[in-house]
Simulated assay, not measured.
Amino acid sequence: MSDRLRLVIFDVDGTLVDSQATIVSSMAAAFAAVDHPLPDRQTLLSVVGLSLDQIYPILAPELSTTAHRQMVEAYKNTYMTERAEAGTAQTAPFYAGAKETLERLQAVDNILLGVATGKSKRGLDKLIEGHGLEGLFVTQQVADFHPSKPHPSMIRQAIQDAGVSTGDTVMVGDTSFDMEMAAAAGVPGIGVSWGYHGRDRLGAAAHMIDDFAGLPTVLQEVWGLQI
């Protein structure tokens, strides 16, 4: 195995954890806060992955900037309340094989793990704490400090943090925003079929997997490593 460091960056919601029930209920609270009709579930999930300040102008363009800010705050408050009451394992359970795959990759000396998510730092910190993932991710890129996906800023900063090259980095995610971000950053995007965007929206993905068991095989193909 080459001794070069490699970086695997993961999206969170829809990729590592299935938080759609809490996302949808928090969206409902956001729309209720401004007395605006709630879009259907598929429409709500179609924008997951974008930063919150980008979501509401898309879903409710006729509302004011002030209303959009109210919606963001209502969403955040509802999400945090539900998680505090039900716990992370209930509100954001791992997809099958996710934790085991993270642990398998972490055990490989030359592979580093990172996160690039539309979550806030507070939200990601709580999720990591709730799932006992402290120390797993060497770089954590969140919405607080970057333009929204698909801007490549998160990946570029993750590469810099990890001290790796673009060619030694991949992005794993479930949405078109993840795959377009990867393409914009010049790294292979590995799309997952179990998340919030269907395969038909993941055309920018360089590779696709249908379960976590397939990820090591793709990484072997990309980098020529035995994992």
Rank of each mutant, 00 (worst) to 15 (best):
residue 24 V to R: 10
residue 154 M to I: 07
residue 100 E to C: 06
residue 65 T to R: 11
residue 27 M to P: 03
residue 202 L to C: 07
residue 162 A to M: 01
residue 167 G to Q: 14
residue 4 R to S: 11
residue 102 L to I: 08
residue 61 P to I: 11
residue 214 G to S: 04
residue 100 E to Y: 12
residue 52 L to E: 04
residue 166 T to S: 15
residue 79 Y to F: 15
residue 77 N to H: 14
residue 74 A to H: 06
residue 222 V to W: 04
residue 183 A to F: 04
residue 18 D to R: 11
residue 71 M to F: 09
residue 119 K to D: 05
residue 149 K to R: 14
residue 167 G to Y: 03
residue 92 A to N: 13
residue 223 W to D: 03
residue 97 G to M: 05
residue 118 G to M: 02
residue 56 Y to F: 15
residue 23 I to T: 06
residue 162 A to S: 05
residue 44 L to M: 14
residue 161 D to V: 06
residue 157 Q to Y: 03
residue 208 M to T: 06
residue 164 V to Q: 00
residue 74 A to W: 06
residue 166 T to Y: 03
residue 98 A to H: 08
residue 125 D to C: 09
residue 170 V to N: 03
residue 5 L to M: 10
residue 44 L to G: 08
residue 102 L to A: 03
residue 225 L to S: 02
residue 53 D to C: 05
residue 224 G to N: 14
residue 105 L to W: 00
residue 101 T to D: 00
residue 38 L to I: 14
residue 82 E to C: 02
residue 134 E to P: 01
residue 159 I to C: 07
residue 65 T to Q: 10
residue 125 D to K: 07
residue 153 S to V: 00
residue 45 L to T: 04
residue 148 S to F: 13
residue 32 A to Q: 14
residue 117 T to H: 05
residue 8 V to E: 00
residue 33 A to H: 09
residue 197 H to W: 04
residue 194 W to R: 07
residue 93 P to E: 03
residue 36 H to V: 08
residue 75 Y to M: 05
residue 74 A to L: 11
residue 48 V to E: 07
residue 103 E to T: 14
residue 56 Y to V: 03
residue 212 F to L: 06
residue 185 A to N: 01
residue 223 W to H: 08
residue 194 W to Q: 08
residue 68 H to E: 05
residue 181 M to S: 14
residue 68 H to I: 01
residue 39 P to I: 13
residue 198 G to S: 15
residue 125 D to R: 10
residue 79 Y to G: 01
residue 204 A to R: 14
residue 218 V to D: 00
residue 94 F to V: 10
residue 116 A to M: 04
residue 72 V to S: 01
residue 17 V to R: 03
residue 205 A to D: 08
residue 40 D to S: 09
residue 214 G to E: 01
residue 172 V to C: 05
residue 29 A to K: 05
residue 222 V to Q: 15
residue 83 R to P: 03
residue 30 A to S: 15
residue 103 E to P: 05
residue 218 V to F: 04
residue 192 V to H: 10
residue 74 A to M: 12
residue 77 N to L: 08
residue 193 S to M: 12
residue 88 T to F: 00
residue 192 V to P: 02
residue 122 R to G: 10
residue 173 G to E: 10
residue 135 G to N: 06
residue 38 L to K: 08
residue 7 L to M: 04
residue 193 S to T: 15
residue 55 I to M: 15
residue 149 K to V: 08
residue 161 D to H: 07
residue 153 S to K: 02
residue 118 G to F: 02
residue 118 G to R: 01
residue 138 V to Q: 11
residue 16 L to C: 08
residue 152 P to L: 00
residue 167 G to F: 01
residue 98 A to D: 03
residue 177 F to C: 03
residue 162 A to I: 02
residue 37 P to L: 13
residue 174 D to E: 12
residue 191 G to D: 10
residue 97 G to T: 06
residue 26 S to K: 02
residue 87 G to Q: 06
residue 159 I to D: 04
residue 127 L to G: 02
residue 156 R to E: 15
residue 171 M to A: 10
residue 141 Q to Y: 00
residue 205 A to T: 08
residue 19 S to Q: 02
residue 219 L to P: 01
residue 106 Q to A: 14
residue 138 V to N: 03
residue 109 D to T: 13
residue 99 K to N: 10
residue 83 R to Y: 02
residue 45 L to F: 12
residue 195 G to F: 05
residue 67 A to C: 09
residue 42 Q to M: 05
residue 215 L to R: 00
residue 150 P to F: 00
residue 178 D to R: 13
residue 91 T to S: 11
residue 171 M to R: 05
residue 159 I to K: 02
residue 104 R to S: 13
residue 128 I to T: 04
